[in-house]
Design a protein around this nucleic acid. Structure first.
Lengths: 340, 340
DNA sequence: CGCTTATATGAGAACGTTCTCGAAGGTTTT
DNA sequence: AAAACCTTCGAGAACGTTCTCATATAAGCG
């Protein structure tokens, strides 16, 4: 039994009216008789009519799709963001199409170059670490593609951006360490060049400044986001002639790496050495001691980005770029409760 | 500067040839002169021509999209599967469209009911826990929608399925416990009714049988997949008058929950009590003691499912359903190395 | 009761492709 | 030199919608 898709024509034929009327009845346009509209809807429901998005896309120049471009998907933060995006997209009748860059600028570029304009109403993007290629996004924007950046946002592009309050989050995290008597604080940072790496670094620096703690350049290390990086960075830190007694890590995975390195040297975390992370990845409650962290509103980042994008898509002409900054929340756990 | 999309017509006009020729030149069909083909490709590249997928979709009845329907995305297993899918989809020029059911049968149903047939060339699906509604998938299949199920597959549907070897994985896991002198083995299972819950249970039962260990019905608990469930199940287990001394958990998250419950009662894991999980979630190396587990080939599940689907899409007529079963691998860690 | 204005509908072009058919010209066969 | 074939291309329909325009009928107005 070959599946014959139900089209608007079938409905028209059954009711002996024209396709245009059916088309109008199916949408919420008003120049159609109440009665005929109801009839059409009834038949459509009965036949299980579903619109052909290719056809509507072709005719109206709009699809039901929004694209997401991001570095990874297999990690707590991003997969939670996607969940948030998915939720509002689904509610508003949009499909989401996923593009994963693996944090590779080449892959990012290739994705954008091959992007079929006609396939998306808009784009949600979190750029990859070394995305020097701001101008490709610039090109997209000039071509009037609605776009909102989240989390990892480019510096020099005028577009809507949604992110957490990295600066104040970092500031509070460091102050929390200080308040718990950890004053020799190192910072395991993210890769250079990423806006939020810089903002978290600045928060760290300013918190030290406020409390008149001198900055030790050797205690600031830039590297990737992985647990392994955190572990390696910490080993380097512990080899310094002047050892720190606390670490503020740019994210939880690196903080976990740090804890593993500390454990290997039998340093008692939370007592002799404080560790604080960023994100509130569920692992932070599983490791022992449990990890203090700045919780990021990942789900909200996703849902708000998506709402903003849809606003931009639908209001196109009257839309002004918006920056949304969401606050983080300190979650105090064992890794910073100083005993001494 | 309003963005004027370049179409096949533009190319035709420039070269003073017909659109049909351009269309042919752009694809790999052979009845076109080598020279003209090269000219067309050159102009297309210069103008940065990109095909309009809505138009090709309409004309050919095929899109470049494959849909993924799954319960969750924010967890190690599924996000890794998606990464695998994404990789081959991207390589073969397909986009992936994501639908998350949140493990709710209603949501699953609503997604399928609203699925626009014309938007997908095929579907990759992992059903949700209580998806009694097999017949909706059955309907899709009868309507000739290419579809392959992965991981959480329905029982009574004739379709391609890709999964890990749950039965033997469970069998080996339990044997591993026995070999390490844990013989009073409980099983924290998944929700009833899911095929892989049953297969893992059967592996557990048969391993006990082989080693002539009697089954204790009270030591088999069915519940959800979360860490909290694992913790609760374990508390119940420890309250039994006859206590087990080992747990085989249906997945790592529940195993972690179990470990947390055991720690609260100061039971020494790996020595007095063995715990083994399933999946090889990265957390299993972070918790202390580290968790022994059966590693699932999540990435391969994704990539193979996707390859199978694309094969089904392209060969439609001559395609026969395939079942692919991938082996699991025991990763032995601290939680099962008995001291006594 | 003829005139304008509203309301409701239909005819048909348009969106950007693919695809079928046939024609033109060239090459080989007989 | 006629017949048969091959290669290359163009014209135009088709895919399922939306949208513009025109038209038919009904309602309101002086």
């Amino acid at each position: 039994m070959p599946h014959h898709l139900v089209t608007i024509k079938d409905i028209a034929k059954i009711l002996k009216i024209s396709v245009s009327t059916v088309s109008r009845a199916l949408r919420d346009t008003y120049d159609v008789n109440r009665e005929t509209k109801e009839k059409v809807l009834a038949v459509a429901a009965e036949l299980k009519y579903k619109p052909n998005f290719n056809a509507t896309g072709l005719a109206r120049g709009s699809t039901h799709n929004i694209g997401i471009i991001l570095p990874f998907i297999a990690n707590y933060y991003f997969s939670t963001v996607i969940t948030g995006i998915q939720e509002v997209a689904h509610a508003k009748g949009y499909n989401i199409i996923l593009f994963v860059t693996n944090d590779s600028p080449e892959r990012e570029l290739s994705i954008i170059k091959n992007l079929s304009f006609s396939s998306f109403d808009g784009l949600l993007v979190s750029i990859c670490s070394d995305s020097a290629e701001d101008n490709h996004f610039q090109q997209l924007i000039e071509d009037e593609m609605p776009i909102v950046f989240f989390d990892r946002v480019p510096k020099n592009i005028d577009a809507s951006k949604v992110m957490q309050d990295d600066y104040n989050g970092a500031f509070e995290a460091v102050e929390h360490l200080i308040q718990n008597n950890f004053t020799k604080i190192a910072h395991i940072a993210g890769p250079k060049g990423l806006t939020f790496t810089e903002k978290r670094l600045q928060g760290y620096l300013d918190a030290l400044k406020k409390h008149e703690i001198p900055v030790n350049e050797k205690w600031i290390i830039f590297s990737g986001f992985s647990q392994e990086c955190g572990e390696a960075d910490t080993s380097r830190l512990l080899a310094c002639e002047e050892r720190p007694n606390a670490i503020f890590a740019v994210n939880d995975r690196k903080a976990i790496g740090a804890m593993l390195a500390l454990k290997k040297q039998n340093i008692e975390i939370g007592k002799d050495f404080g560790v604080i992370g960023f994100t509130n990845d569920p692992v932070s409650t599983i490791i022992s001691p449990t990890l203090t962290t700045m919780a990021e509103p990942a789900y909200d980042i996703g849902s708000i980005s998506c709402e903003l994008l849809i606003k931009q898509i639908t209001k196109k002409k009257y839309f002004h770029n918006e920056d949304v900054v969401l606050t983080c929340k300190l979650i105090s756990r064992e890794s910073t409760m100083r005993g001494k």
